[in-house]
């Protein structure tokens, strides 16, 4: 199998990911790509607590992820890759041409962002970056849970 889901979600590991996507995909490992979390043992313990013991959690910086991504893609098990923001997704896709899709699963309100979907708030700059990602051949859609419709990037940016 392969990485079944590349997801942008500012909550990183949480219920929608572990249960909502993890159950139907029968996920065996989750890769969390975040420079800050990958350098903090305490943060890693926190995120690991939300994951059942049979699911492996891998923490990586963007640089580490770029090097390891081909191995994750070749893993016979099913995995999910998570990033916390648009910039991390763009940085990863720029380093690894193998990244062909990104699911926008949850980017929430903060100053400067406007509502695009119930679970997606973006600055104009972030929206432009997602459109650029799509223009480079990455399939960008927004979908919080598997039972929802995958909204094409043109409809929310």
């Amino acid at each position: 199998m392969t990485l079944a889901l590349y997801r942008i979600d500012d909550r990183l590991i949480h219920g929608q990911v572990v249960v909502g996507w993890g159950q139907p995909l029968d996920v065996a490992f989750i890769v969390l790509v975040d420079d800050e979390v990958s350098s903090s043992d305490w943060e890693q313990d926190l995120y690991r607590m939300g994951v059942p013991p049979q699911i492996e959690v891998v923490f990586a910086s963007v640089e580490q992820a770029a090097a390891l991504l081909p191995a994750w893609e070749a893993d016979p098990r099913v995995g999910i890759l998570l990033v916390g923001d648009v910039d991390t997704a763009v940085a990863l896709a720029a380093r690894v041409p193998q990244v062909k899709r990104f699911n926008v699963g949850g980017v929430h309100h903060r100053a400067g962002r406007t509502e695009r979907l119930r679970f997606v708030y973006l600055t104009d700059d972030e929206a432009a970056k997602l459109r650029q990602l799509a223009a480079r051949g990455v399939d960008v859609t927004a979908q919080d849970v598997p039972t929802a419709r995958a909204v094409p990037v043109g409809e929310f940016t």
Binding site: R11, I13, H14, G15, V18, L46, M49, G50
Partner: peptide
Amino acid sequence: DLPGGSCFTSSARYAK
């Protein structure tokens, strides 16, 4: 509610 997820991680972070 749950021993993991956004409610938990935010609460644990806030407590710390």
